[in-house]
Simulated assay, not measured.
Amino acid sequence: MVKVVVAEDHALVRQGISMLLSATGGFQLVAETALGSEVEALVGFHKPDLLLLDLALSDSSGIEVARKVKKLTPETKVLIVTGNVYPGSVANAFAAGADGFVLKHEQGSELLDAIQAVLSGRQYISQQVSKSLDSTANVRASSLGLSQTLTQREQQIVRMIAKGGSNQEIADALHISVLTARKHRQNVMLKLGLHNGAEIAAYAMQSGLAEAPDVDSNL
C-alpha cells in the first residue's frame, strides 16, 4: 500500500482526492490537513510515500512546506496539486524538491498518471500546466516591453508588492516615506494599466519580475 498525506485547505478537494484514491486501490490515506504548519509533523510521524500538496495553503507557502518535507524525508515524493500556475511557482516548486505539478481542475486520470510517474522516480508536469506555461511565455514576452517603462525603483516596488509587502513595509525596507512608497505604487499602476496590488503581483509573476534578484530589499 502506498501511504499518502494530503495537505489541502479545501475540504471538498480533500474528500475528492480521498474518494479517487479509495476507488483506485493500492493507496492508504494516512493523514490529511488544511494547514501547512501541520504537514512537517504528519510527514515525520507517518513517513508517507507521497505528499499531495497545495501551494496556496491558508497559513503558509506550499513551496516552503515542500522544502521542509524534502529535508526531513527525502524519500517522500511531493506532488503539487494546486489551482493556479505561474512560471515562478513551477520553477520554485521544483527547486524546493517537488516531484510533480498538476492542477486541481484536471481529470482524476491525470492525477493518477502523475502519482504513478513520481512514485516511479520521474518528474511530472501535466499537459495543462505545460500549456499554461507556454501561453504565459507569450504574455511574458509582451509584458517585457511594459517592464522597460518602469524605473529600477519601480521594478523593485513591483517585486516587493509581489512578495506581499505593504506600503509601510516597503517604506521601511527602502528607507523612504510611506507617501513615497504609495506614490511609486500609483505610478506602477498607471504605467501598467493595473488597479490593485493583486494585479501587480500577477503581472510580476507573468512578466518574470517576481523572479529577478533584488539585492536592496529586505522583503
Rank of each mutant, 00 (worst) to 15 (best):
M1I: 08
M1A: 05
V2Y: 12
V5P: 00
V5G: 05
V6E: 01
R14S: 03
R14P: 02
Q15E: 12
G16I: 06
I17M: 15
S18P: 00
M19L: 15
L20G: 01
L21N: 14
S22R: 14
A23P: 00
V30Y: 12
E32P: 08
E32F: 14
A34Q: 15
L35V: 11
G36Q: 01
E40Y: 11
A41Q: 15
F45L: 08
H46P: 06
L51G: 13
L52S: 14
D54W: 11
D54E: 11
L55R: 13
L57I: 15
S58L: 12
D59F: 13
I63C: 09
E64Q: 13
V65C: 06
A66Q: 10
K68G: 01
V69S: 05
V69D: 05
K70I: 09
K70Y: 11
L72S: 08
L72A: 07
T73Y: 04
T76L: 00
V78L: 02
V78K: 01
T82F: 04
G83H: 06
Y86M: 01
Y86K: 06
Y86N: 03
P87M: 07
G88T: 05
A93L: 14
A93D: 11
A98H: 15
A98P: 13
D99K: 12
D99I: 13
F101D: 11
F101G: 10
V102W: 13
L103P: 09
K104W: 15
H105Y: 10
Q107S: 06
G108M: 12
S109C: 03
S109K: 15
E110L: 10
L112V: 13
A114L: 09
A114V: 07
I115C: 12
R122K: 14
Y124F: 15
Y124V: 08
Y124L: 02
I125D: 03
S126F: 10
K131Y: 05
S132V: 04
D134S: 04
N138Q: 03
V139F: 04
V139N: 02
V139T: 02
R140E: 04
G145E: 04
G145D: 09
Q148H: 09
T151K: 04
Q155H: 00
Q155K: 02
I157Y: 01
V158Q: 03
A162S: 09
A162C: 07
S166W: 13
D172N: 10
L174S: 02
H175G: 05
S177V: 03
S177T: 15
A181T: 03
R182G: 00
R182A: 13
K183H: 09
N187K: 03
V188D: 03
K191F: 08
L192V: 00
L192Q: 08
L192A: 07
H195R: 07
N196R: 02
N196D: 04
E199P: 09
E199Y: 08
A202V: 01
Y203N: 04
A204V: 06
S207F: 04
A210V: 10
E211F: 01
D214N: 08
S217C: 04
S217W: 07
L219Q: 10
L219D: 05
